[in-house]
């Protein structure tokens, strides 16, 4: 295996961790709230831009990303209150919700352009030299993205397995009505789901902005790899989504060794199509 392949694999792991951060949120809202949220990528963009807003006011980048995460959480819960909760109460069909999310995505994406303009923005961060190990170059921020993803995933694991709210979320994902009958506060669970999704997605957006640039289309272009990851991992299964994200990220990057770079997205789609053909329920057990 030559160094270029190893290099591409490393890049893929970095991309995969960003997709993983966002895909966990997507799979949770899909599995727990039954919402195929096509605006999820745009939530990521909004998170990245909110961090950019804080950063451009002169705040330190890590604090900015934290602020961006907090603002995205607030924003997601606001969306839950205004849109998703009323729609669930009238028992809107899943297709109505999908179309709604598309409209919301168009609204957010263009709102970002309206406020910040269509051009690329960059965080105000010190330039770090890439680490060089045996001919491999690993950008400092790529390494950080991987580290943060692992930390966030560990935190999520602890939350889901050992906290009361995590158990309640899994119960709601299994069966909403049964969970409600056992006395679980479904609305509270929904808020928590959005909070976790918003925080992780904004973190992913911030990391993606650090590695590449902050663009109005950044999240929208990632929505298909995200869906590919969660279908691969079984919808509603956060661990599956993480594995799926790494598979997709690595496959996309390594494919550039054999194919023109522009077909990266195509690789994700082909993997998704194959999974749907062979094992539509995903590699791991999902909740749907």
């Amino acid at each position: 295996m030559d160094t270029q392949l190893i290099q591409l694999t490393l890049n893929g792991i970095a991309v995969g961790s960003i997709i993983a951060l966002a895909a966990v949120g997507l799979t949770l809202t899909y599995g727990v709230l039954r919402l195929a949220n096509f605006a999820h990528g745009d939530f990521m963009t909004v998170g990245a831009y909110l961090s950019f807003l804080a950063n451009s006011l002169g705040i330190n980048i890590w604090l900015s990303i934290l602020l961006g995460m907090a603002a995205t959480v607030a924003f997601s819960i606001l969306g839950e209150k205004i849109i998703w909760s009323p729609m669930r109460n009238v028992r809107a069909s899943s297709t109505t919700l999908i179309i709604l999310s598309i409209g919301l995505g168009i609204f957010l994406r263009n709102g970002v352009i309206l406020i910040w303009g269509g051009s690329n923005q960059n965080y105000n961060v010190p330039v770090m030299s890439a680490l060089e190990i045996g001919g491999l170059r690993i950008a400092y921020y790529q390494l950080l993205a991987i580290a943060f993803a692992i930390l966030a995933i560990l935190g999520l694991h602890l939350l889901l397995q050992y906290s009361k709210i995590g158990k309640a979320m899994r119960a709601v994902a299994d069966n909403v009505d049964l969970a409600r009958v056992t006395g679980i506060n479904v609305e509270g669970v929904a808020n928590w789901t959005w909070a976790i999704a918003g925080a992780l997605t904004a973190l992913g957006g911030g990391m993606y902005g650090l590695i590449t640039a902050v663009r109005p289309n950044m999240g929208w272009f990632l929505i298909l790899p995200m869906f590919a990851s969660i279908i691969l991992g079984g919808i509603g299964n956060p661990y599956g989504a993480i594995v799926g994200a790494f598979v997709i990220g690595i496959a996309q990057e390594v494919s550039t060794y054999f194919l023109p770079t522009e077909y990266k997205l195509g690789v994700a789609l082909v993997i998704m199509a194959l999974v749907l053909l062979v094992r539509p329920q995903g590699i791991f057990r999902g909740t749907l």
Binding site: I83, P86, M87, A92, T96, L97, I99, L100, I102, G103, L104, G105, I106, F107, L108, R109, N110, G111, I113, L114, G117, G118
Partner: peptide, 19 residues
Amino acid sequence: RLGAFRLMIIGLILVVLML
């Protein structure tokens, strides 16, 4: 930005229509 604004309205129309 005008183009973005017009598309925002379209997104909003979809959202409000569905709601």
